[in-house]
């Protein structure tokens, strides 16, 4: 797996680059946004890790260039940001980032996020049709959920959504994408309805830390289901 890593702090890049290489990634480090954008457009990278603050061209601007040039062929992008304000993260997500990590970085979190976005190309392929998580069993083929062996009754929509979450564990799912996939863009009401369905899913399937789950809302713009 080839990763383009944009970071203008050499010391920092060395540490993080080390983590990535250790995890088996092939890392190309760039300290200039312009060079990085050129390289990603020319070469075949499987993923990008962009820092927000770079002297010549910020991560957001690089991302914008890539989106114009590569369009559908965009590799997944994870943003690294020292700013964790809602506005900044929403800006990154709106610009097309797949996920973000906040500085100071934690090695496991970074690797988990990167891994989650890199899995995108093969959604469902590597997954077993039945997932076992302790007391919770998810049967993708039969579209069923079992909690302590009891089948959980859910509507078609809720089932669609829950199955989508379990196929994308650890990955940031933006609300727009959920609406697109589960509601097939037919949802007019927008955010509130998604919130209600996600809350219901948490409640029904017991997705709480006590059972090894964490369901996170990202400023109301996206959700991530994490397995602890």
């Amino acid at each position: 797996m080839k990763i383009a890593y944009l970071e203008d702090d050499a010391g920092y890049a060395e540490v993080v680059g080390g983590w990535l290489r250790e995890a088996g990634y092939d890392v190309d480090w760039f300290s200039s946004g312009v060079e990085c954008a050129r390289a990603v457009i020319a070469g075949s990278y499987d993923g990008c890790l962009f820092d927000w603050m770079v002297a010549d061209l910020s991560g957001i601007e690089v991302l914008a260039r890539l989106r114009i040039r590569l369009n559908q062929a965009m590799p997944p992008v994870v943003f690294v940001t020292g700013r964790d304000g809602e506005r900044d993260i929403v800006e990154a997500l709106d610009a097309g980032a797949d996920d973000y990590v906040v500085k100071p970085l934690s090695k496991p979190v970074l690797l988990a996020r990167l891994q989650a976005v890199l899995r995108r190309h093969g959604v469902g392929e590597g997954l077993p049709s039945v997932q076992e998580f302790g007391r919770l069993t998810v049967d993708h083929d039969r579209r069923l959920f079992f909690l302590d062996g009891d089948a959980i009754k859910m509507t078609v929509r809720d089932t669609d959504m829950a199955l989508y979450f379990f196929k994308n564990i650890g990955r940031l799912l933006t609300r727009d994408r959920l609406i697109e996939i589960v509601w097939a863009r037919s949802l007019e009401a927008g955010g509130r309805t998604v919130d209600v369905h996600v809350s219901k899913m948490r409640h029904r399937l017991g997705l709480t830390p006590e059972f090894g789950w964490r369901l996170i809302g990202v400023y109301g713009r996206g959700y991530r289901l994490e397995r602890l």
């Binding site: 955010g191 919130d195 209600v196 809350s199 948490r202 709480t208 830390p209 006590e210 809302g217 109301g220």
Partner: peptide, 18 residues
């Protein structure tokens, strides 16, 4: 924006769980 308070509270509780 309009938000579900309970969603936020669950999330906070999740975060402090460990």
């Amino acid at each position: 924006k309009t938000l579900d308070l309970l969603f936020i509270l669950h999330q906070a509780a999740d975060e402090l769980y460990p």
